[in-house]
Amino acid sequence: MITPAPLPFRGSLPEASPPSDMAIYQLPTGTYETRAAFAFKGGSWREKRSFAATAVLVRHPGGDLLIDAGFGADVAAHVKAQPRLARAPYKALSTVSDQFDAAGYDRDRLRGVLITHAHWDHVSGLDQLRVPIWMNPSELRYAAEDGDGRVYRTVSQGREIRQYAFDDKPYLGFSCSYDVYGDGSVVVALAGGHTTGSVIVFVTLPTGKRYAFIGDLAWQLEGVTRPAERPWLMRKLADCDEDQVRDGLRRMASLKDLMQIVPSHDLSAYAGIPLLPGR
């Protein structure tokens, strides 16, 4: 458990004016298996968890945006590129690219892929997506230099990199943010901690429903609902700054009753987000 326990957020939520035809869809591309004991402090050794590899499509009249890319066509090679201890049994489903084709999706609508961070299971699907990759300068440096960026460096070859810059404008306790469309409907906040430039993507729909796509700030919802950080060994292996992750978890735990919080790898966290309609 994280102490001190966070208090519920009592301020006003940021203003947002999402267009009436804005929507989001989930695109599940597969899962891989791990133990709950590795996912969050206090998790059971006996309980197996299927970690999601799911992308989220934001449809917006200003141009669509994909949050993360899920598993790609070369997922087997991407898994093999990981250290042996980091490999896990996985199940691949249809890639984002294949789901786009099955739905008759017009790819000219897609402005790019905004990745929450550059680890392999968030970027694998870039191997089939010929669109700009949206990254902030801090995460771009991490991806270029860190050993965990090797798959990113492979799948990003020949792609346009769209670097976005944060404004010195706090957003729900995070120090800086970037308003993608200028209407408050999609706001990217720098979280850091897991990787140096990892982000949270806050989305507000026309209905007023709010989401926080928190990447790997937590791997499972217990990280926010308890809140519970990763076990000691996983923190040492996976995180750049443990204290920064704890701070982020406290902030998100204080918001858990105000929005749907979606850790990238928690299957249950995507409940209620529709699949991309087929043709």
Rank of each mutant, 00 (worst) to 15 (best):
W120P: 02
P137W: 11
V123Q: 07
D127E: 11
Y152D: 05
S138C: 09
S156V: 10
D168P: 12
V131E: 07
Y152E: 08
I161K: 04
P132E: 12
Y164K: 08
V151G: 01
E139M: 05
S156H: 13
V113Y: 03
F166K: 07
L140H: 12
D168H: 13
I115E: 02
T154Q: 03
H122C: 08
A144H: 05
Q128T: 12
N136L: 10
E139Y: 12
Q128Y: 05
H119E: 11
A143D: 04
R141P: 08
V155K: 04
V155T: 02
N136H: 10
D148F: 15
V151R: 00
Y142A: 02
M135N: 03
D121K: 07
Y142L: 05
Q163H: 08
A143E: 03
T116R: 09
H117D: 08
L129R: 04
S156G: 12
G149D: 06
G112A: 09
Q128A: 08
T116F: 03
F166Q: 10
H122M: 11
G158D: 01
L140M: 10
D148C: 10
A118Q: 07
D168W: 07
E145N: 05
G147T: 12
Y152L: 13
L129D: 04
D127Y: 06
V123K: 04
D148Q: 13
G112M: 11
D121N: 12
W134T: 02
E145Y: 08
D146S: 12
T154S: 09
D121C: 05
D146A: 15
I115A: 09
D121R: 09
E145G: 00
R111Q: 10
W134P: 00
G112W: 01
H117L: 04
R150P: 07
R130E: 11
L140Q: 11
Q157P: 00
T154R: 00
G149R: 01
S138K: 08
Q128G: 01
H117I: 03
G149I: 00
A165T: 14
N136A: 12
R159K: 15
A165Y: 12
E160M: 12
Q163T: 15
D121G: 06
H122N: 07
A144V: 06
L129F: 15
E139C: 07
I133F: 13
G158H: 03
N136P: 02
F166N: 06
L140G: 11
D146T: 01
S124M: 08
A165V: 10
I133G: 06
P137A: 13
Y142H: 15
A165Q: 15
G147M: 08
E160I: 14
R150I: 14
L129A: 06
D121P: 01
R141A: 13
D121H: 09
G149C: 11
S156A: 15
R162C: 14
R153T: 01
Y164Q: 05
D148S: 13
D167M: 05
H119Y: 13
T154N: 01
G125E: 00
D146P: 04
R130K: 14
H119F: 08
E145C: 02
P137R: 13
A118S: 15
D146R: 04
Y142V: 00
V123T: 09
A118D: 06
E145P: 00
G158I: 01
Y152F: 15
D167I: 02
V155D: 02
